[in-house]
Design a binder for these strands. Sequence first.
DNA 1: GTGAAAGCGCTAACAG
DNA 2: CTGTTAGCGCTTTCAC
Lengths: 337, 337
Amino acid sequence: MADVAKLAGVSLSTVSHALSGKRPISAEVKQRIFQAIDELGYQPHMLARALATKQTRTIALLYPSLTSEVVGPQLEFVSGVLQATNEYNYGLLLWTAPDGDQELPRLLRQGMIDGLVLMEVRLDDPRVRLLREHNYHFTMIGHGDKGENENLNFVDLDFVYAVQTCVSYLAELDHKRMALIGPSEQLYKQKVGYVVRAVEAYYQALEQHGLEGSFVFCDAQAQAGYEATFSLLSHDSPPTGLIVLNPWIIGGIMRAIHERGLLVPSDISLVGILSPLMAEMSVPPLTGIDFPYKTLGYRSAELLLRQLTGEKVNVQEQLQPKLTVRRSSGQAPISHM
Amino acid sequence: MADVAKLAGVSLSTVSHALSGKRPISAEVKQRIFQAIDELGYQPHMLARALATKQTRTIALLYPSLTSEVVGPQLEFVSGVLQATNEYNYGLLLWTAPDGDQELPRLLRQGMIDGLVLMEVRLDDPRVRLLREHNYHFTMIGHGDKGENENLNFVDLDFVYAVQTCVSYLAELDHKRMALIGPSEQLYKQKVGYVVRAVEAYYQALEQHGLEGSFVFCDAQAQAGYEATFSLLSHDSPPTGLIVLNPWIIGGIMRAIHERGLLVPSDISLVGILSPLMAEMSVPPLTGIDFPYKTLGYRSAELLLRQLTGEKVNVQEQLQPKLTVRRSSGQAPISHM
DNA sequence: GTGAAAGCGCTAACAG
DNA sequence: CTGTTAGCGCTTTCAC
């Protein structure tokens, strides 16, 4: 930059201001400066700028720990977040969640980022507490328990709506017994928000409709889905309507159903909460709530970015995407009782 | 840091050296310093450090442009890269590929990163040229044409091996007519390395075995897979062995097969090049070359990171993962001719 | 062993 | 409108 100033015959600060536009510069001088700039192929050094302004124009996505084998659908959030940061001309740093939540403030103070997007938020999330205390800029994909979210910005899928819609839909098709093939037990125990809400909503919906229903935890692997389903179908009067939370296990579920000699959708209906992409991948394509992963990622980042520009943002959005009927669901089979 | 120095009664530089260990410090002083550090909850400011040392301890993953709707499996690379950066205590910045390749050097000179991982490398990739000219640290997932890779480090799946293995496998099962349900036409036209190699290897393998075979481009959506397959099966003597490059379209392929009244694997065998996760997801589970997305991501980042520590790395690795036989493939049906 | 001081490349008062 | 100067928070010569 010193070179540029010299070549243009002006001072450092003039060059700086010409670039930032933070004060009026005569057209003629500006001209000289920009000419010098691309004559020298000069590029501003972001790091130095960041050090001086205390703004890195970079945000982070705090990614759940990678120890769990399957990170699967979560990855789709990334693509949404990335799109937003791109549009706003920010950088995106990926971080894995430090186990000890003590790590978090450490990272923040290192000054590498201006804010962050949190995902896999627990009902009572210590990270949220910390970030809040430190008055840090952040938004969430997901949200905490009632009362934990005041003044926080987030986007989430409305899992209560989603599960209730699934149950109602199956109920309308005369399914009397259903099952929720659920989240992993680990996530439930950690009280990850959406997981807890989904399970609660499920039981509530059953009650509303006066139906019976079972529920099994299930890890995010095909084999686990297979086993869970197989055991479900071993009951005396097995469910005819299945609600699936994790798309990665449909393969296993399908296999168990087939091995039992049953057919989808004539014997068993399957409804999921999953991205349309996934829904279309399976055979038959799955009826389900269209989980807008990418949109959630995009919105959450957008909220943060707007917040960083000084805008007073106050958004708590719970998306209620529609249920798309595909070919995995239908009228309940006539009962033999 | 000034505060720390004051509290410990030493000078700035002593604190700095205590932290970096770059020069001997008396145990007693060290003691005082560290005590002061956590008394004040001091955290080194990475940005400032980076400015002084010209090392950001951050690398970037150059992500293909997001305009294409389906980024799908690529995302799995990210998780591998992330794991490596984590282990080496580096940060990971995600970048989308600038369209104009002119953008690239701009970004590099901004000084935000120490090196980068390139993906979706084309046979004659202008980005590689640029990076090379500028003597920039980088590694690739994938690789360019023969002669383009001298002195470069990369990891890749050996697509020639992969496709040949698939063809041979089907040939052994007496399949006489096969088809490659291919990459998107766009990627092929862009001469993305693996795509071109896969197609070439396919024709070569057919010739070796004296077989006929067809080939269709196919975008990465279920519907496209459906249409491609449907038209393939409309021929007089349709193929009995299908090789699938993109796992996202299997759903569509399966549907087309079923609608034609055919069964997998008795009428048609399906073989893919895809992650085991995907393979297990589908019904029946797919026979295929186990694409180690995560491993490729991990290795590529590791190469870069080692390179950055000054090590003279010289690795060009082409993985040849085994073909896992699952349930989508079997003996060719007896011909009616 | 330790301290003083000169940067890293930019921004932002403060003067003119 | 433009130039001077003092930092941003750390590292690293160079002296002691």
